[in-house]
Each structure stands twice: as structure tokens, then as C-alpha cells.
């Protein structure tokens, strides 16, 4: 019962803040609504027993990444954008219509997947609890089965840092 209530709460918050992100003119408002979306997502992750991911969702997304966005917004002296609806040209209208069709198709696809997944893995909630909790199990997975991708990720991050430094420095 509590789960249902929480789900609808977080889901509603996420949808509303996502809509705000798209419709508000001020970039700072947009950024803040995106943070709200991320936090709601973190709540949903907890409902789904993904505690580790929920934590880094807050830390990395809502924290680090969004702070970066806000920094950049403040760094750039942005002119105000026109109202979302006032510049609703034909192309935009067409785009929204297409997006709605896409959503309808996604719904149709979702409705057709019921009962298609018969094989289930070993990581049931009980097993995970027994093995020491979600974070511990994911940590072990990352350093065993997914060791190579995990290490490669570090290279990716270094490259990103170097790239950012290179792009950001003044030419002289």
C-alpha cells in the first residue's frame, strides 16, 4: 500500500518536473526542475531495491552533473528564450505529434510484453539480503564479472577530463 502511494508520488513529481524542464523559459528553473526529476527517480530506484544506484543518482546526477550545468548557465550570459508555446511553428507541432505517436507505440509495445520473461536470475530480494545487501553484491559484480568494462570506464573518464581541459583553455 505504502509502495503504491510512494510510486504515484514520485512518478507524479517526475512527470511534472520533466514538463517544467521542457516548458519553462529560464534555464535555471529548467535545471532545478531537472534536479527534482532526478531526485524523484532516486526515490523510485529505492522502491525498486536499487539502493546503490539511488545513492549515486543523487551524488553524481543531482549533485555533480547538475551543479556543473548550473555553473555553466551562470557562466554564460544567456538571453531569455521566447515562450515555449509562442513559437510553436509547424515543425515543432509536427515534432510533438510524432513524439506522441512514438509514446503510443511504446505503450503498445509495453502491453505486448506481459509474461514474456520466464527466466529469472538468482538475485532475488532475499538472496541479495542474505549476501549482504545490494551495494555489496553490485560491488562484487563490478570487480569480478565486469572488471574489464569497469576499468575501461576509468580511461573514458580520463579522456573526458583531458578533452574538457583542452576545449576549455584559451587559445594562445
Amino acid at each position: 500500500m505504502l509502495e503504491t502511494v510512494l510510486f504515484y508520488f514520485f512518478a507524479g513529481a517526475a512527470i511534472i518536473s520533466a514538463l517544467m524542464l521542457v516548458m519553462r523559459k529560464n534555464p535555471v528553473t529548467c535545471a532545478v526542475s531537472l534536479i527534482i526529476t532526478f531526485i524523484s527517480f532516486a526515490g523510485l530506484y529505492i522502491l525498486l531495491n536499487a539502493h546503490f544506484i539511488a545513492a549515486i543518482q543523487i551524488l553524481v546526477y543531482a549533485g555533480a552533473i547538475m551543479v556543473l550545468f548550473l555553473f555553466v548557465i551562470m557562466l554564460l550570459d544567456l538571453k531569455r528564450e521566447e515562450d515555449f508555446l509562442s513559437r510553436l511553428k509547424a515543425q515543432k507541432f509536427f515534432g510533438i505529434a510524432l513524439a506522441v505517436i512514438l509514446l503510443a507505440e511504446v505503450f503498445a509495445a509495453i502491453s505486448s510484453i506481459n509474461g514474456m520473461f520466464l527466466t529469472r536470475g538468482i538475485y532475488s530480494a532475499e538472496n541479495i539480503a542474505e549476501a549482504g545487501g545490494n551495494t555489496k553484491v553490485i560491488g562484487r559484480l563490478l570487480f569480478t564479472d565486469y572488471l574489464l568494462p569497469f576499468e575501461v570506464t576509468s580511461i573514458l573518464l580520463i579522456v573526458a577530463i583531458i578533452g574538457a581541459v583542452f576545449l576549455g583553455k584559451k587559445e594562445n
Binding site: 553524481v60 556543473l68 538475485y123 573518464l157
Partner: peptide, 27 residues
Amino acid sequence: YLNSLDGQVFVFFVLSVAAAEVVVGLA
């Protein structure tokens, strides 16, 4: 719903990629 942790590991990687992407993109 599939009792598998692979999805969560995958999300972890998506997060890392997103972080890298944001850094470069903002630059």
C-alpha cells in the same frame, strides 16, 4: 522484476558515460 543485477550494473556504466559526456558537452 527479473531478479538480475546486470541492469543495475549497466546503469552504473550509463552514469559514468553520462558524466563524461556532460563534461565534454558543456566544454
